[in-house]
């Protein structure tokens, strides 16, 4: 099959530096992007399968990919080495391409998607991670 060239990889390399987010579920996506925007770090949304559809992984055929798998695939695709994954169950994970696949930076649920966005951005700019928003969550129901 000579002559057929897959240029998707090349296009990815040429794309401007950005954190990559792979979201299988819809919950928390808006908050996640808001966190990144507030910190001023660009982000690119990609499809919610671990390998971006280029090849099918074993996990893809059977059950849906976990947030950790999505995040790690996203981090490896990101020119900034930082990726975020949201799975269908609403788990959110922030990963760095240079970390072992099974040891993400943070894993949490969609209620803290905003916090994950902030932290993904902070990994890029080299700032300490934000404190978990425990106190905020407690005060929300009162309003």
């Amino acid at each position: 099959m000579s002559g057929v060239v897959d240029r998707r990889g090349e296009r990815e390399r040429r794309s401007p530096p950005a954190v990559v987010a792979r979201c299988a579920g819809g919950s928390g996506v808006r908050e996640l992007l808001a966190g990144l925007e507030e910190e001023g770090v660009p982000v690119r949304l990609a499809s919610g399968t671990p390998t971006g559809g280029a090849a099918t992984s074993p996990a893809d055929s059977g059950e849906a990919a976990t947030a950790v798998e999505l995040a790690h695939a996203a981090a490896r695709a990101s020119p900034l080495d930082v990726g975020v994954g949201i799975d269908v169950e609403g788990r959110v994970c922030v990963h760095h391409a240079k970390r072992p696949a099974d040891r993400p930076v943070v894993t949490t649920d969609a209620t803290r998607a905003r916090w994950c966005g902030h932290n993904a951005a902070r990994l890029v700019v080299g700032l300490p991670l934000k404190e978990p928003p425990e106190q905020l969550e407690e005060t929300w129901p009162q309003h």
């Binding site: 072992p100 930076v105 080299g126 300490p128 991670l129």
Partner: peptide, 9 residues
């Protein structure tokens, strides 16, 4: 890898 709490600290 260092723990996430230590990052940039």
């Amino acid at each position: 890898p260092l723990p996430a709490e230590a990052f940039a600290r």
